[in-house]
């Protein structure tokens, strides 16, 4: 029983991390039609930025240092997203998809290396503090930490806010318009570049939250965690159906469930988690190419 409860908690925690990353992938793909392969790396710069500004933040705001540092890092990563779009990714929007793919993979290398070089002793893992200490409740004999509770609440709130923003504000509606039909949006005098910037900010900041959660959940940060985080987040988005928010969440729940299950049931599970995750991705892509929730659109001729 305790085993089961523990695994359910793990599942929900992982799901929220995957979901926050997957949403970013989905949003970027929907709007830009580019797979931002370095999205995981962008998100995982957040814990490093947070730790870098922690000392200053603690000095300025005693008692709220960590919270401020994290807010700063999330905002900074959002700005980083805008910067990357302006400097580079924007140019690949009309290029063949392969170019964008390779370019953003290379961008991931650059980001990882920058962290490694710029952060003191960046090649080695560093501990990352638990955001909120203590346990919120005891369920079935298992301690549920505040961290996991906070992660889940934050994820739900962010998804709700994002969904409200996309559906009930003028800017959000424009984002959806661009994502559905860029040409049409142009005719409606929507400035696509602004939309891209906003999208990049939102997606990157969401990814940053995921990055902070991830570092806090596993208790450490390492410069090269972004690649695996990115691959898993992307997989979750694809399993659910790219360009579809609900899909991203469902995909994350499915992927995290599988991940937790494999680690719990098989003795050597940790070693095979990526194998199982990607087998799932393969199965979905082959049997439901548009994802679990995606509608398959007839090819435009």
């Amino acid at each position: 029983m305790e085993q089961v409860v523990q695994q359910v908690i793990n599942w929900l925690a992982l799901s929220s991390i995957y979901a926050l990353l997957a949403i970013g992938f989905s949003l970027l793909f929907g709007v830009l039609n580019v797979i931002q392969f370095s999205h995981g790396d962008v998100g995982l710069t957040a814990p490093f930025i947070a730790m870098a500004v922690l000392a200053a933040a603690s000095a300025l705001f005693p008692g709220a240092g960590l919270a401020i540092a994290i807010l700063v890092s999330v905002f900074a990563v959002g700005v980083l997203g805008i910067l990357l779009d302006r400097l580079m990714i924007r140019r690949f929007r009309t290029a063949p998809p392969m170019m964008a793919l390779v370019a953003t993979v290379a961008l991931g290398i650059v980001l990882r290396e920058l962290i490694r070089i710029l952060y003191p002793d960046g090649s080695n893992p560093h501990p990352f503090p638990v955001l909120i200490e203590g346990n919120a409740a005891v369920v079935g004999g298992v301690n549920v930490s505040w961290l996991v509770v906070a992660m889940m609440i934050a994820t739900v709130l962010m998804v709700a806010a994002l969904s409200a923003f996309l559906h009930h504000t003028a800017l959000g509606t424009r984002i959806r318009a661009v994502s559905q039909d860029l040409e049409m949006a142009r005719m409606l005098a929507i400035n696509p570049n602004r939309i891209f910037q906003v999208t990049f900010f939102i997606a990157s900041a969401t990814g940053a939250v995921a990055g902070v959660f991830y570092a806090s959940y596993v208790g450490l940060m390492r410069f090269d965690l972004g690649i695996i985080a990115g691959l898993l987040g992307f997989s979750a988005a694809v399993i659910g159906g790219l360009g579809n928010m609900t899909g991203a969440i469902v995909g994350s729940l499915v992927l995290a469930a599988l991940d937790t299950l494999v680690q719990a049931v098989f003795p050597d599970g940790t070693a095979y988690r990526l194998v199982v995750a990607f087998l799932m991705v393969l199965a979905v892509l082959v049997f439901r190419p548009a994802g679990l929730l995606g509608k398959s659109v007839p090819q435009k001729v």
Partner: peptide, 19 residues
């Protein structure tokens, strides 16, 4: 599958083999 999705298929296969 095609384009980005196909790219993901090959990434997945590559990672699986490596693992």
């Amino acid at each position: 599958t095609r384009d980005s999705y196909l790219a993901l298929v090959t990434i997945a296969c590559g990672v699986i083999i490596h693992q």
